[in-house]
């Protein structure tokens, strides 16, 4: 009933991008987003586009996979476009119908925002497509570990994320089982009004929560039995280590960011 959830939509392949350290990819995504909103002018957009195309090519992930994420934002995309088109004030009026005016600035603003949003989604799905959820968690733990100084429980958050990842399929299966058991006893999850359908979820959620708490309790005990006592004094079997490729990656990112800043300052251009 509930199909297999592919979390993080990882696309297995063996590309340069896949092999990069998760920290590089995380920093890279952030850099890309910053650059995306920094650049100005036609040249700036050309550069960002070329960078994105280059990374997509290197990742060997089919382009269609990236567009999948687009479905989720199509609504937001339309709304921002409409607002930008109609509500941006400007001097050159293109169309005027009743109280609504469409200006040249409005159209340009709408296009800019749409391009930025689309690139944003493609850029971040590139990260999740080329990095397993696990190494993403590891990477984030390593990147945010300086925050431990101000008592942010970085290790604990990372541990919770990876446990959540492990239990998603288990709890999905369990939901499926409870659902079938309830359907066999006459429960109805598919028909009726929206409110009714929500009400019918209660007999599904209660046993699911009970079992989730039971599992959490068991797991905590199993972790303690295996000497888990937080991140302190813990070693790693596969610690993150930068390779030459990762250093090159950081260099490319630095150059890219520098170019974006320069284009912000000197690039005017038509858009």
């Amino acid at each position: 009933m509930l199909g297999e959830i592919t979390l993080g939509q990882y696309y297995p392949a063996d590309s340069v991008i896949h092999r990069l350290d998760p920290r590089v990819k995380f920093v890279g995504t952030l850099t890309f987003i910053v650059a995306l909103f920094l650049v100005k002018g036609f040249l700036g957009y050309v550069m960002v586009t070329l960078f994105l195309l280059g990374v997509i090519k290197a990742s060997t992930v089919p382009f269609g996979m990236m567009l999948r994420g687009m479905k989720a934002i199509i609504f937001i995309l339309l709304i921002t476009a409409v607002f930008n088109v109609f509500l941006t004030p400007g001097e050159i009026v293109l169309v005027k119908v009743w109280k609504l005016t469409i200006t040249r600035e409005g159209v340009l603003q709408a296009v800019r925002m749409a391009v930025r949003l689309i690139y944003l989604v493609i850029g971040s799905s590139l990260m999740t497509l080329t990095t397993t959820p696990n190494s993403l968690t590891d990477g984030m733990e390593a990147l945010f570990s300086p925050l431990k100084v101000i008592h942010v429980p970085v290790h604990e958050i990372a541990m919770m994320m990876s446990i959540a990842l492990r239990f998603i399929p288990i709890l999905t299966e369990e939901t499926d089982r409870i659902m079938k058991a309830q359907i066999a006893r006459g429960a109805d999850f598919k028909t009726g009004s929206f409110i009714n359908r929500i009400k019918n979820m209660v007999p599904l959620l209660v046993p699911l929560f009970v079992s989730a708490f039971q599992r959490a309790n068991d797991l905590a005990m199993a972790m303690e039995a295996r000497c888990y006592h937080g991140g302190e004094g813990r070693t790693r079997m596969k610690p993150l280590r930068y390779t030459a490729a990762d250093r090159v990656g950081y260099l490319v990112l630095a150059l890219f960011l520098a170019a974006a800043i320069l284009l912000r300052i000197f690039g005017g251009g038509w858009i």
Partner: peptide, 12 residues
Amino acid sequence: FQNPDNQIIGTV
């Protein structure tokens, strides 16, 4: 422990 699912912590 008894339940194998509830004592495996790693995703691999």
